[in-house]
């Protein structure tokens, strides 16, 4: 079953066209790595999927529900209420973590399940504790985010997104603002998620992760999907010139 269907997406910032007719399909349990040079539109594509950015043209269907529909004269969005509900089927992990600094780790995790999903608080706390154990941070339950290292904050952010029981997880360069020695712990958590067959879209510069964990790799540059395929197709036998150039540059 398709979890994400994005067709013919156009996105412009003032006069700058960032996405020029992007297609992206993600099936259940797939781990899609989106790679490419900075400014190529990778993050923008991800942010369009959950309406952090709005598109000018194209169709976005999430988990069988239409977020935006192409009318021929531009994209038409679902109602605010529906769009909000559809968008939060996707958990999102940001480069800058974006934890809520005035809440403890546990409060960060339970905030949206209790306030938005109106779930039973005691139950949510129990689940949150399990999630914290999973990301290895049970002992940080009552600590404020500022006391945590970047890697720990990012793992809390992953747990916070998971607490919403999302159908899909989006990662926007989750390790790009971490010190090199801290990226490992975050990548490990993401790898475990992939093994549990979570559907994931990961914008990343970690080629090792893309190669080993992804089931599909999408190479984006200049606002287009230049190449798309299995990790072998992308990394071992690249045919696209832009991709060959990119792989050569990052090898150095």
């Amino acid at each position: 079953m398709k979890k994400i269907e994005a067709r013919n997406i156009y996105k412009r910032f003032q006069n700058l066209e960032v996405l020029k007719g992007i297609d992206l399909e993600v099936s259940e349990g797939e781990v899609v790595a989106v790679i490419g040079p900075s400014g190529g539109g990778k993050s923008t594509l991800l942010r369009c999927l959950n309406k952090l950015e709005t598109i000018e043209q194209g169709t976005i269907i999430i988990d069988g529900e239409t977020l935006a529909k192409d009318t021929g004269k531009g994209a038409e969005y679902a109602s605010t209420e529906d769009a909000r509900r559809i968008a939060c089927k996707m958990g999102m992990v940001f480069q800058q973590f974006n934890l809520f600094p005035h809440m403890t780790v546990l409060e960060n995790l339970i905030e949206a399940p209790v306030q938005v999903q109106k779930r039973n608080k005691a139950e949510v706390i129990k689940e949150a504790e399990i999630l914290l154990e999973k990301v290895g941070l049970s002992d940080k339950r009552d600590v404020y985010p500022r006391k945590l290292s970047g890697g720990q904050q990012q793992r809390v952010a992953i747990a916070r997104a998971l607490a919403m029981k999302p159908a899909i997880m989006l990662f926007d360069e989750p390790t790009s603002s971490l010190d090199p020695e801290l990226t490992g712990e975050v990548l490990r958590t993401m790898r475990e998620l992939a093994e549990e067959k979570m559907t994931m879209v990961v914008v990343t510069h970690e080629m090792g992760f893309a190669r080993e964990v992804a089931t599909k790799v999408v190479f984006m540059a200049d606002g287009y999907v230049q190449a798309c395929g299995t990790p072998e197709e992308i990394f071992e036998n690249p045919t696209n010139e832009r991709l060959k150039h990119f792989l050569n540059v990052i090898k150095k």
Binding site: K51, L52, A87, C88, F94, L99, A112, V116, A161
Partner: peptide, 22 residues
């Protein structure tokens, strides 16, 4: 920071919830 609003958005919070809680 803008990231606070974005995190709240991805967690499905409304404008009022985002203002009041975050």
């Amino acid at each position: 920071p803008k990231g606070q609003y974005e995190a709240a958005h991805t967690l499905g919070m409304s404008y009022v919830q985002t203002m009041r809680r975050i």
